[in-house]
Amino acid sequence: MTQRQIQILYRACWTIALLIAAIPFVFPFIWMVSAGFKSVTEIFGAPTLIPRVWRWQNFIEVFTYQPFARQYFNSLYIAILVTVLTLVIASLAGYALARMRFAGAGLLMLFLISALMVPEEVTIIPNFFLMRWAGLMDTHWPLILLPTFGPHGVMATFLMRQYFLALPKELEEAGKMDGLSRFGVWWQIALPMSRPALAAVAIITFLFSWNLFLEPLIFVSSLEMFTLPLALSNFNDSYGLPLWNLQLAATSLAVVPILIVYLIAQRQIIESFALSGVKG
């Protein structure tokens, strides 16, 4: 065999190995959608990828079993709100930490770094009592406030700070000479130049909020206030056993739109996670 043929064979082996490895990553999504269309009896029959009978009714029952549309909307508006808030707060603080000299900056940095490392689980109990004291139980406030100001928000702040540090300082000085205030420099010069970082923060924050589970589980109790992950785990019959076809239909409804967006913008989304590098 020539060198070239060996090369091709080598590549082919790798590609086949990768294709096999990809199965457990892709198959669950396919099976999820497929099962979402099946009846309960068919689900436990011999496995078929294409449902014998397409039971569209599942997707109607999802909305009658619990206020799924409302829950969907809750997740969406909370995620958008958390994203916008995080963008504003993190880029303001990140800018000050990157560019401004002020007493207490060093200490503040140290505080924030420590916050970055402490899991939400550690502070969730006092936060529960804080929210109960403030009368915010079974509202969406905890689901907006805690992610925005928690470790995730701090991570976003550091991400913005890193990005601001790498921007050329002279541009902002030129803005100052042109008569902009500090706020003006931030808004009109630093932010427009930080679009990649802002996009990255927006993407990971949106997904973080969208997938959040512990906080909704603890702070929210009425069905109308549920967010998607909580709603999904709630498709059970009166014995607490999963209503598989409804649950999988609902999960498909929750996951597929995100997957479509992901497929369109996969490059941007993957790069955002690479940039943050500290999640999981």
Binding site: A22, F25, F29, N211, L228, P229, P242, Y262, R267
Partner: peptide, 26 residues
């Protein structure tokens, strides 16, 4: 095919852990 594979292997990361667990439990 490199983009295809990267996209596939990364897809579960952006998926909700609850959804992922539901499907695997199934």
């Amino acid at each position: 095919g490199v983009v295809f594979f990267r996209t596939v292997f990364f897809a579960p990361v952006i998926t909700s852990a609850i959804a992922w667990a539901i499907v695997w439990k199934f």
